[in-house]
Design a protein around this nucleic acid. Structure first.
Lengths: 213, 213
DNA sequence: AGCAGATTCAATCATGTGATTGAATCATTC
DNA sequence: GAATGATTCAATCACATGATTGAATCTGCT
């Protein structure tokens, strides 16, 4: 390679711009200008804008999936009635995502994921089928084991709630305008603890509410 | 007017398309084609694409704000130690939004709000300052009254969590692919109850967690 | 040195974009 | 029924978009 690591530089700049303005709000030309490369290089290395988008995500999505499933595996070895099981399940969901923020490029990934549901369907659907849906099923079945009385609908909703506020809490564009701080604190472990406490308590709230009548 | 209610038809079609593909994914030409009107009509009636987007939102955003503040007013008249106060606060946040789904055009509005944070900054920032931020402050101060020991950070996070999963739970594009159902159930009251239970329990979980050490 | 394959480049294609213009059409009022 | 103002229209502007091409350049190998 003449330029050192052109491909990597494209990926870095693309990640930042996709995170900032979304897929439709970002143009290949703008990416390549910031990366200092010709527009054709993007097509040479990736083939199309859509493939580039997917490549940006693929740099992180697999590692985080592995970490989640590994943590979930530990949960599976716990008895269903273990006192902290629900907390551990949500920890397995949140921790790998939050820990990514201390990794180079992790913030960009988190912001891309936060706007994931708003991106063009044809872009996100294959990603969902390949990666997110299998993970989701594992979590749902583990949540079911922890709360066998909850309906499928309640389980699906709870998981959706957790994913939703995990993703958006890290990137809330309004957070800085009311609180002075960035939505991403220095104390990542504290943030994870807050996420886990809220999600587990909410989930347990549903459990006891359904147990009433 | 020659065509009956051209302006209204533009707003309806624009709402559907903005909800489906977002601001950058939607073109004026596509809107006007579906509405059966000339492109220039959009500029005649609204002035620009950005103003049209704002007009689409403004049709609903005020009514829902009034409803929220009215419900919150009732909370303010309750003593801080009232047993169901937290639930009523979150009810005031969720119910007006969910009830919108039974109103003509309400689903489109909900979907637009769900992708709100992903839209271009210059579009959403004025809307946030004008409408969402004042409402947010009222809710935060009421949550503070219900939980005086929680830090500002916890209050801000809790409110952000609640808004996040309220908005996304109604429009999750993947919901139909795992559960058979639409994310919007027939039983809106049941959905509201689920949202309230989860949010209030999560919030109370934070309260008791912070009270420990 | 010279070859071959990988990489980068400027230039261009076809299409789509928001916006604007000025003429045509409509509805209303006197 | 003519005049007036509101509305709609086809046509066009200036520019941005993703993609492609073929020539130039670089790199590593013999």
């Amino acid at each position: 390679m003449s330029q050192p690591d052109t491909k990597r530089r494209i990926l870095d700049v693309a990640a930042r711009q996709f995170a900032e303005r979304g897929y439709n709000g970002t143009s290949l030309r703008e990416i390549m200008r910031e990366a200092g490369v010709n527009v054709a290089a993007a097509h040479y290395h990736f083939g199309s804008k859509g493939v580039l988008y997917r490549a940006v995500i693929d740099r992180f999505v697999c590692r985080i999936r592995e970490q989640r499933l590994a943590l979930l595996e530990e949960c599976k070895r716990m008895p269903a009635e273990s006192p902290g099981l629900v907390e551990r399940i949500f920890y397995a969901l949140f921790a790998p995502h939050v820990h990514l923020l201390h990794v180079e490029g992790g913030i960009e990934y988190a912001r891309i994921i936060a706007r994931y549901a708003s991106e063009p369907r044809e872009l996100i659907l294959p990603l969902y089928k390949d990666v997110f849906e299998p993970v989701r099923q594992q979590f749902i079945s583990e949540l079911h084991r922890a709360a066998p009385d909850l309906s499928d609908d309640d389980l699906n909703r709870s998981y959706g709630f957790a994913v939703a506020f995990m993703a958006t809490s890290l990137v809330d564009p309004t957070y800085e305008s009311h609180s002075g701080n960035s939505p991403i604190p220095d104390d990542l472990e504290g943030l994870i603890a807050t996420l886990v406490t809220f999600a587990a308590a909410g989930f347990r709230g549903l459990m006891s509410e359904r147990g009433k009548s």
